[in-house]
Simulated scan of single mutants.
Amino acid sequence: MPVPAPDFVQLFAPGTSHDFPDAEVSLLVRVLPGVPLSLPSGRVVAMEPAYFGEDDPAELAFTEQVRPGTYPVVLIMVDMIGPDGEDQGNTRVAGARLEIRDEPVATWELAVTPGDDLDDLEDDELFGYPVDSGTGCFVDARTVEALGEDEDFAEEVLSARFDRDPRIPATDPITMSVGDDDHALVAFSTGWGDGSYSTWIGRTAGGDVACFLTDFEVLPEEDDE
């Protein structure tokens, strides 16, 4: 069975400060305003944009589907703060949350794709998507299908992330258009960089999907030594 979900509600609460292991700095949480993402089919994909065209979109999408529509993607940021309260100028994306319902999350469960079997996981394992360009995204499976094997689009996403005006924080989300859809993909920096990152489904007390949240493992769980 997978590792239990962290208490994301507490971990990512805006204004919360967390000690940074082995350093005289703290990590201060803040949340950016949401940016819209189109989900024309309601089949959510979380992935590294550089891998477009390498896998079947139906196998990339999470098994949990939502009503088609446009939903906000919210980035949870952390700023490094020195012992005297000064901003160290080092900001990271700790998590990316695709908000489906504006309701409190009561429970969390690991989001899985059709090829994932929770019984295959060891106690310390999680399913997640690989990243080797420091970039992740949320996108609809239908959009991935439309792109096909368009390697140029993957390059466009990465260029938009890394070739921006230096006055604009690199941690801001990037919205990409596909065809007539101006909100087809939202891309963002992934925490400290490369790795494998899991996405969780937050459910309301009534069992409805409230959000999909990708954790970039920037923050330690409370009291985690």
Rank of each mutant, 00 (worst) to 15 (best):
P83C: 03
L158D: 04
S189G: 13
P68Q: 05
D79H: 11
G89S: 12
G195D: 08
Y197G: 03
F62K: 02
E145Q: 15
G53R: 03
A94V: 04
L32Y: 00
D55V: 04
R161G: 05
L110Q: 15
D19F: 03
V112R: 09
Y129T: 10
R101A: 15
R97C: 10
E222Y: 04
G136S: 08
E64D: 15
F216V: 04
D119N: 13
G34A: 11
Y197D: 04
A170E: 14
D123N: 08
E59S: 14
I168N: 10
D55R: 07
G193H: 06
D55S: 11
P4A: 11
G136R: 02
D120A: 14
F162E: 14
A5K: 03
A146K: 09
D84T: 14
E156N: 11
G34T: 04
V131G: 04
G115T: 11
S26K: 15
A106S: 14
D165Y: 03
V186F: 06
D132G: 03
R101M: 14
P40Q: 04
L110M: 13
T190D: 06
W192S: 10
P14Y: 12
E155V: 08
E145I: 00
D140I: 02
A210C: 07
P68R: 02
E156C: 05
T113L: 06
G195I: 01
N90V: 13
M80L: 15
P72S: 12
L147C: 05
P104S: 08
R30I: 00
L118M: 12
P33M: 06
Q65L: 00
L75Y: 03
R161Q: 15
L98C: 05
A61F: 01
D102Y: 00
T135L: 12
L28Y: 08
E64Y: 00
I201D: 01
D56S: 09
V78R: 07
L158T: 00
V209Q: 04
G34L: 09
S41I: 01
S41N: 06
L118V: 11
R97V: 08
G148K: 06
G95E: 06
V25W: 10
F52A: 09
G128L: 05
F162S: 13
A205H: 09
P83D: 13
A58R: 09
Q65W: 00
F212A: 01
R101G: 01
Y71C: 04
L32N: 11
P33D: 15
E64I: 01
F153V: 02
L158Q: 12
E222Q: 13
T204Q: 05
L213S: 06
A141E: 06
P169C: 11
M176E: 11
A58C: 03
Y129Q: 08
H18Q: 10
P2S: 09
T63E: 13
V45E: 01
D165W: 07
G134W: 03
A210I: 02
G85T: 09
D150M: 07
D194T: 06
L27W: 05
D123M: 05
T171D: 12
D140W: 01
R43C: 09
R161K: 14
G85F: 10
G34C: 09
R167P: 00
T214G: 10
S159F: 08
E149A: 14
S177D: 12
L60Q: 12
R203I: 04
G115K: 10
H18L: 14
V218S: 07
D172Y: 10
S196V: 15
V3L: 15
V35M: 10
